[in-house]
Design a protein around this nucleic acid. Structure first.
Length: 431
RNA sequence: GUGGCUAUAGUUUAGUGGUAAAACUUCGGUUUGUGGAACCGAUAUCGAGAGUUCGAUUCUCUCUAGCCACCCCA
């Protein structure tokens, strides 16, 4: 029989222990942070009826969706993000007490062309508050974002914030048509990448007149610290005819700042967000030391989404961490601690006659919470010690006929190269 | 989805129209109670399929995958 070539699908990957151990720690940290703010876990199915997802992400989103007929000829799609499924859950389970704060850490699928740091299956860590239009909810999402990154050991992040209300008020004051608004949002969003001239060129190409282009550029260039630059921002609000919505945005950020005084919040009017469903604040987060990864944490308010599944409109605001991007960025910044094994101790198996003692040692250690591995074959010490050290297991527990006579075991710390004799009964205490 | 570049052991690379080198890794050994060293040895139908050819890993085509740009985004 010919062997099947082992391979993974384009854009999909395996996470080997070396990566998955620190990755899982990262997930644990994020989850703990979300729970500290009182968010509750939700899990939803991979597959949804296609009609649930289609049309929610714009034409582009529909094209990138994994969609097919299942064995029962149902038109199904794999979830494209975690937000639409949440909206479906909220609409479907009206009894859920609101405001509801839920989080979900799960993979999503997009049939995009791959690139470095861009995959077809990737994880998102979402936290959303459903059923409150209070600015406090917006502020708490911003604070959560900051607190979660801080918990991961990240210091140099900047949360750049804008609001769809501000954008709309400004565009209306310019008298842009709906079509022009969309192309303006798209163009302005690229200002970091293509620069002012590039944006101007694209706007002009889209038929926007010179005067308006200049105004749009002036708008997009606003990037001011929300706390230190507050006076300046108030002035800009008046100049650009966006006084009211900008003031609302500033008061949200002020509250977030009280919750997370160490965070850096910047009002950046070039932030646009591609997804159609945002209605209020929108934000993106970049790491200053690793800007090439783009936004690692973004979100915003989307008050209209649940209404697409239910006659009752339910306001919502949330944030999403791109786990894979953040991991790559942290890896580059040296914030990922390499760990190769989950086992802390290896029981050296070196005298077949003592096997029952090895088994007892293993179960005692495990019962007291020490992650313990047992070498399966009887083999020489050398081989087993080198197995432990190469595997990244820190302690070797050596027990042979000599030790058996004394009722002791040798615990060898392979990192320090030291060893100690401990009596058999005290082994768990050693750790 | 469109366009460009790439594809040789687990990894990084060398090389040739006549079936392939090296380093590191992995596994085994160097006479058996102390590892991360040294030495010896093993491990490749040269991404897959088809075509041209007496003969292809080397040329051509298709597919697949990776990287880059666009698009979009996490």
């Amino acid at each position: 029989m010919s062997k099947i070539e082992p391979k993974t699908l384009k854009g999909f990957r395996d996470f080997l222990p070396e990566k998955q151990i620190p990755r899982q720690k990262m997930i644990d940290s994020i989850r703990a942070s979300y729970e500290r703010f009182g968010f509750e876990p939700l899990e939803t199915p991979v597959l949804e009826y296609a009609e649930t997802l289609v049309g929610k992400y714009g034409d582009e989103g529909d094209k990138l969706m994994y969609r097919f007929k299942d064995n029962g000829d149902r038109d199904v799609a794999m979830r494209y993000d975690l937000t639409i499924p949440l909206a479906r859950v909220v609409a479907q389970n009206g009894e859920i007490k609101k405001p509801w704060k839920r989080y979900q850490i799960s993979p999503v699928w997009r049939a995009e062309n791959t690139q470095k740091g861009r995959y077809r299956e990737f994880y998102q860590c979402d936290a959303d508050i459903v059923g409150s239009s209070s600015p406090l909810a917006d502020a708490e999402v911003l604070a959560l974002a900051a607190a979660t990154l801080k918990a991961l050991g990240i210091r140099d992040f900047v949360i750049r914030i804008n609001s769809r209300e501000v954008i709309n008020a400004f565009y209306d004051s310019l008298g842009l048509t709906e079509g022009e608004k969309i192309s303006a949002i798209r163009a302005i969003d690229k200002i970091d990448k293509v620069g002012k001239d590039g944006v101007a060129e694209e706007l002009t190409k889209n038929g926007i007149i010179y005067d308006t282009v200049q105004k749009l550029l002036a708008f997009a260039e606003v990037s001011i610290d929300a706390v230190k630059g507050q006076d300046e921002l108030v002035k800009i609000g008046e100049e650009l005819n966006v006084k009211e919505p900008l003031a609302r945005l500033l008061s949200i950020v002020e509250v977030a700042y009280k919750l997370e005084p160490e965070a850096r919040f910047v009002i950046d009017l070039s932030i646009a967000r591609g997804l159609d469903y945002y209605t209020g604040i929108i934000f993106e987060t970049t790491l200053q030391a690793a800007p090439q990864y783009g936004s690692v944490l973004s979100g915003g308010r989307y008050d209209g989404l649940v209404g697409m599944f239910s006659s009752k409109g339910v306001p919502a605001v949330g944030a999403s961490i791109g786990l894979d991007r953040l991991y790559s960025a942290l890896e580059e910044l040296g914030l990922i601690k390499e760990e190769r094994s989950t086992a802390k101790a290896l029981i050296v198996n070196f005298d077949a006659a003592l096997e029952s003692d090895y088994l007892r040692l293993a179960s005692e250690l495990r019962a007291s919470g020490v992650n313990t591995a047992l070498y399966f074959e009887t083999a020489d010490l050398k081989k087993q010690l080198s197995y432990a050290s190469e595997k990244g297991i820190r302690y070797a527990i050596i027990y042979g006929s000599n030790e058996a006579k004394e009722g002791k075991v040798i615990v060898k710390d392979l990192e320090k190269g030291e060893q100690e004799k401990v009596s058999v009964g005290d082994i768990a205490k050693y750790f």
